[in-house]
Design a protein around this nucleic acid. Structure first.
Lengths: 192, 192
DNA sequence: GTCTATAGTAGGATAGAC
DNA sequence: GTCTATCCTACTATAGAC
C-alpha cells in the first residue's frame, strides 16, 4: 500500500471516529505510519486530505448500498435489504456524522461529498419505491420521494439515538419502525 | 446577567454552532464578555462548563417540546404539533448534533445529558401514542414504542439530510413523511 | 468574583536534507 | 517521495493581583 493510500485510509478512519475538528494531521500520520513530508507532498493540507478520505468513504458506502438495492427481488425485499445492511450504530454513519460537523459544512468541497452521497441514495431509494408502486406492491397513493426521505432520515436518526443512549437497540427500534412502515404500505396495495 | 450565566449561555450557543472540539474557551470568553478568571472561578474547565451549557439547552428544549405535546387536543394533533415545532434545519438539533460528537460521547457526564433528553422525549411520545391507541385514534396494532422511535429518528435524520444538502427542504420532506405515517395510522383505526 | 499575565502542550504548515 | 527539524499560532489551564 502506498503512503498516499495509507494516509487516505487512516484519515477516513479518524474522521469517522473523531470528526474533522477532532482529527489532527499528527494522528493521521501516526496511524498511517508516515511522516509530515508524505502528507504535504500528496495533499495541500488537512482539508485536501479530508476531501480525498471522504470521497473514498462515500464510494465504499455507495458500493455496499447498491448491492442491497440492486437485484431482481421485489421492491419490498430490496428496501428491507437496505434497512438490514450491517451497520455499527454506536460508531454512527460515516457521511451522516460528517454532515453534522461544522468544519465539513463550512467547506464547500467537503460538504459536496455528503450532498452527493445522500443525493444519490435518495434517488436510488425513490427509484426502487417507484418500481414498487408501478408493480402494484405499494398503495397507489404512495409518494416515493417522501418515503425515500423517510427511510434515509430514519436510519440517520437511529444512529443519533443510539449514540445518545450508547445503545444499539435504539438504532434497531427506529429501523424497525421504518420496516413497519414499508410493510404497511405493502399490506393494502389496493387502498390508495 | 451574571458572568456565570453569560458563560453558560455563550457556551451553549457555540456548542450548537461548532460542536465540542470546535469550541475553545477563548471563543466562549469573548462571546460572554468575560475573562479567564471568571470561567475558572465558576467552572473547573471546559468540560464542566459544557455540562452546564448542555443542561441548560436540554431544559429549554424540554419546555418547548412539552408545550407541543401537552394539552387537551387529540393525540394526532399533539404529535403534529411536535412535528411542526419551529426548528432551524441547517443549524441542526442542539442535542442531536452533540450526540454525534466524539468528545461528548466519550464523556459520561456530557453524554448523559443527551441520553436523558432523548429518553424523556421517547417516553413522552410513547405516552401520547398510547393515549391515542386507547382513544381509538390509531389502529389497535399500533406499537407506541416503535412509532415514538420512528418519529424521533425522522426529525433527527431530517436535520442530517438538511445539513448535508444545505437545504431546509430536505428536512421538511423527512418530517412530511412522518406526518404521513401518523395520518395513515389514524386513517384506518379499525384495521389492526 | 473578575482581571491580566504567563506557561506548557498540541495543531497545522514549511524548509531543506536525503 | 519521504524524512526530520523547525516555526508560529491557538488551546487549555494556572498564578497572582485587584
Amino acid at each position: 500500500m502506498s503512503k498516499k493510500e495509507a494516509l487516505t485510509r487512516a484519515a477516513g478512519e479518524l474522521l469517522w471516529e473523531r470528526g474533522y475538528a477532532g482529527t489532527s494531521p499528527a494522528m493521521i500520520l501516526q496511524r498511517a505510519g508516515a511522516g509530515q513530508g508524505s502528507m504535504y507532498h500528496h495533499f495541500s493540507g488537512k482539508a485536501d486530505l479530508a476531501a480525498a478520505a471522504m470521497a473514498r468513504l462515500s464510494e465504499q458506502m455507495r458500493a455496499r448500498t447498491e448491492e442491497a438495492l440492486a437485484g431482481d427481488g421485489s421492491a419490498v425485499a430490496r428496501l428491507n435489504s437496505f434497512l438490514d445492511l450491517e451497520r455499527d450504530p454506536l460508531a454512527g454513519c460515516r457521511m451522516g456524522r460528517l454532515a453534522q460537523d461544522h468544519e465539513v459544512v463550512a467547506d464547500d468541497v467537503l460538504r459536496a461529498t455528503t450532498a452527493d452521497f445522500f443525493g444519490w441514495l435518495g434517488r436510488r431509494l425513490t427509484e426502487v419505491l417507484t418500481e414498487g408502486v408501478r408493480a402494484g406492491e405499494f398503495r397507489p397513493g404512495t409518494d416515493p420521494d417522501l418515503m425515500a426521505s423517510l427511510l434515509m432520515a430514519t436510519v440517520q436518526g437511529g444512529y443519533v439515538l443510539a449514540r445518545a443512549h450508547q445503545d444499539p437497540a435504539a438504532f434497531r427500534r427506529a429501523v424497525d419502525g421504518a420496516r413497519r412502515v414499508v410493510a404497511d404500505l405493502a399490506a393494502s396495495p389496493g387502498q390508495g
